[in-house]
């Protein structure tokens, strides 16, 4: 169902809010600033020349503070918001060329969405909330119920299916939101600050659950957040937005080790680098003799764990090895310390 390489392709997307947005695209393209557009022409620049290629079956995080345009951006993917200019293709299909009926069909079976404030239907029980998407698609009641029960169990809400949303805690409500989205069995999952309204501990649990589910489901997930820790933990790729423009786009390692500007540098300052930077990112070609006494780090190990290994040995370098134990490169303690 998914395109192998690129699932979601966004090209030079502009979104301007105001009474006559089309008229200002050209000026914005030629460098008119957000402030100027707002002050002189009372139009708000929502998104400014956004181009992102989101690979299939990966978690793409879009990060930014409030007002950065991240929620506007995610709503373009299922076209809850119409772009002012630009192109969006999903699995090779032009989203913007869809007729209303095609678009409805695409929303029913192509994408599913999880919302920041859950957006559950308060008059329906947990079970009836989870079957909602299937019901809209016209799936039979019995079949929808079976699918829903399976997902309710997967997100850990077994036994709560006859409760109502108001009887559940925030974390549980968002599990319902997730089950509702998953039961639609779509290739794309859009998560709009899905965990931002949750307590930190519950948020971590939900992140863990998402990563576990993703190992098996391999969906193309677009995850919006304002929390860098969350972005680093979940994202295979991260896009950082500010004032509607992309400032940096890359892997979490890239962003931590090579922040594009001062804004991002300030952002990454408070992150626990030891936990998120992986030994692979600091790897150099092997120069030392591959000695058995050298500490060995599995590929993907975090720096904080690698440092602990060094403490048991007086070697200045260690080997990064892949799953089979074959050396991939070496990492020196000095480089690790620099990176931290």
């Amino acid at each position: 169902m998914t395109d192998q390489q690129t699932a979601i392709e966004i090209r030079s997307l502009y979104k301007i809010f105001g009474s006559n947005p089309k008229a200002w695209v050209e000026q914005v393209r030629n460098g008119m600033s957000k402030a100027e557009l707002a002050e002189k022409h009372s139009h708000i620049l929502g998104l400014n020349d956004i181009s992102i290629s989101m690979p299939a079956s990966k978690i793409q995080v879009i990060m930014g503070l409030s007002g950065s345009g991240k929620s506007t951006l995610i709503r373009h993917i299922n076209r809850l918001i119409e772009p002012t200019s630009g192109a969006i293709t999903i699995g090779g299909r032009d989203v913007l060329a869809m007729t209303e009926a095609e678009q409805r069909e695409f929303r029913r079976s192509g994408t599913a969405m999880v919302f920041q404030r859950f957006a559950l239907l308060p008059h329906r029980s947990v079970l009836d909330n989870v079957t909602f998407g299937l019901e809209v698609r016209g799936v039979g009641a019995a079949k929808a119920r079976d699918a829903a029960m399976r997902w309710i169990e997967r997100v850990g809400l077994k036994g709560f299916e006859n409760r109502y949303p108001t009887e559940l805690s925030g974390g549980m409500q968002q599990r319902v939101g997730l089950a509702r989205a998953l039961s639609n069995d779509t290739a794309i999952l859009l998560m709009d600050e899905a965990y931002s309204a949750l307590d930190p501990l519950i948020r971590t649990d939900m992140q863990t659950m998402l990563l576990e589910l993703q190992k098996e489901l391999k969906k193309t997930i677009v995850f919006i957040t304002h929390d860098l820790d969350e972005a680093l933990r979940l994202g295979d790729g991260i896009v950082i937005l500010r004032d509607g423009s992309i400032i940096q786009q890359g892997s979490g390692q890239d962003i931590l080790l090579r922040p594009a500007d001062d804004y991002i540098r300030r952002f990454v300052q408070d992150v626990n680098r030891g936990r998120f930077i992986k030994v692979d990112s600091l790897m150099e070609p092997v120069t030392a003799a591959p000695d058995d006494s050298l500490p060995r780090f599995a590929s993907g190990m975090a720096l904080e764990d690698a440092v602990k290994r060094f403490s048991g040995s007086d070697s200045p370098a260690g080997l990064v090895v892949d799953d089979t134990g074959k050396p991939m490169g070496q990492v020196t303690l000095r480089r690790i310390m620099e990176a931290l």
Binding site: R104, T111, A112, L121, V136
Partner: peptide
């Protein structure tokens, strides 16, 4: 009726009559 709930109904591909009878009227 809560805007977010309506947005969710749209995101799941409700037609306008589905939105009316499954979401707006009950609420």
């Amino acid at each position: 009726v809560d805007k977010e709930v309506l947005e969710a109904a749209d995101a799941f591909g409700c037609s306008s009559s589905q939105k009316l009878w499954k979401v707006q009227m009950p609420l």
